[in-house]
């Protein structure tokens, strides 16, 4: 059996990882809530952002945390452009098409990364990656604490953006009733693209927060996309608070099932939750009943 200290430490670590998962899921759920589409390329975009952070460090020695200032706007613009000029026009307004187009984008990005960087795993080694904070009987990774704090800050910023700004109001209007929003003069295509850009920007922040403790390779997106979908489904598709709660729960489940079942079976808990929630309560734990 495991001692309570180990279990509690695993739970705390799970919560810290979960905060990052929540941040990864934030963009996915925002895009779903507004555009009502599942962005299958979400994981691949995260991988691309992680490579960008890694590249900035490898080429110019830029610290991953400072890289936030560069990759976030770049990914916002990229996301805006992809939605505005690729997904939107190519989908002809059909949700099934959007799913397939984002699947295509995901294959494209993943293999472009493979072609560009090879299949090797990269990381950004630094002393900070290994520094720990002592909290009572627990040893906690400083980088993970920073990551979790960063996620919370981004979530609060998103909340302020959505509730306090005109853009946020327009986004909410489009999410609720796109025809009506169009009638009152909101450019729906533009708002869709902004939303998509925001989703990608959130991923860029997540990538910067992840890189000090994590590694990247072209296939890393797959692992995250499964988790992000589970978080989003669990929290209720489209719900931002749901994504935050879902992220924390999934982080804990993953950490505990990894501890109890071992590395290779640890992922099973996530898939089972995912399938059960979809089959039994597709609106999620926090979503309204359909």
């Amino acid at each position: 059996m495991f001692s309570p200290t180990i279990i509690i430490e695993a739970m705390i670590n799970g919560l810290l990882t979960g905060a990052i998962y929540a941040l990864v899921a934030l963009g996915l759920t925002l895009v779903y809530g507004v555009l009502h589409i599942i962005n299958f390329a979400h994981g691949a975009t995260l991988a691309a952002a992680m490579f960008a952070v890694w590249g900035l460090n490898a080429a110019f020695g830029i610290d991953p945390y400072w890289a936030i200032l560069i990759v976030t706007p770049v990914f916002f613009v990229l996301g805006y452009g992809v939605q505005r000029f690729v997904i939107g026009p190519a989908a002809h307004g059909d949700d099934g098409n959007i799913l397939l187009i984002t699947l295509g984008l995901s294959i494209l990005i993943e293999n472009a990364l493979l072609a560009g960087f090879g299949s090797d795993t990269r990381s950004i080694p630094s002393d900070f990656s290994f520094s720990v904070v002592e909290a009572g009987p627990f040893l906690l990774s400083s980088a993970r604490l920073v990551g979790a704090a960063g996620s919370l800050i981004v979530a609060v910023l998103f909340w302020l953006l959505m509730s306090r700004t005109d853009t946020g109001k327009a986004i909410r209007a489009v999410a609720r009733e796109k025809l009506g929003a169009n009638l009152v003069g909101i450019n729906v295509g533009h708002i869709y693209a902004i939303t998509f850009g925001l989703g990608c920007a959130a991923l860029a922040v997540a990538a910067s927060l992840l890189m000090p403790t994590f590694y990247v390779n072209p296939r890393i997106g797959g692992a995250f996309v499964n988790i992000a979908f589970t978080v989003v489904v669990l929290g209720g598709m489209g719900s931002i608070p749901g994504a935050m709660a879902g992220g924390l729960i999934i982080g804990m489940v993953e950490s505990l099932s990894g501890l109890l079942l071992g590395e290779s079976l640890g992922q099973i808990g996530i898939f089972i939750i995912f399938i059960l929630v979809l089959l039994l309560r597709p609106t999620g734990l926090f979503g309204a009943k359909a």
Binding site: P89, N97, G104, L105, I107, N111
Partner: peptide, 9 residues
Amino acid sequence: AVVLIVVIA
């Protein structure tokens, strides 16, 4: 992937 997107479009 490019062919897929072009076909859908």
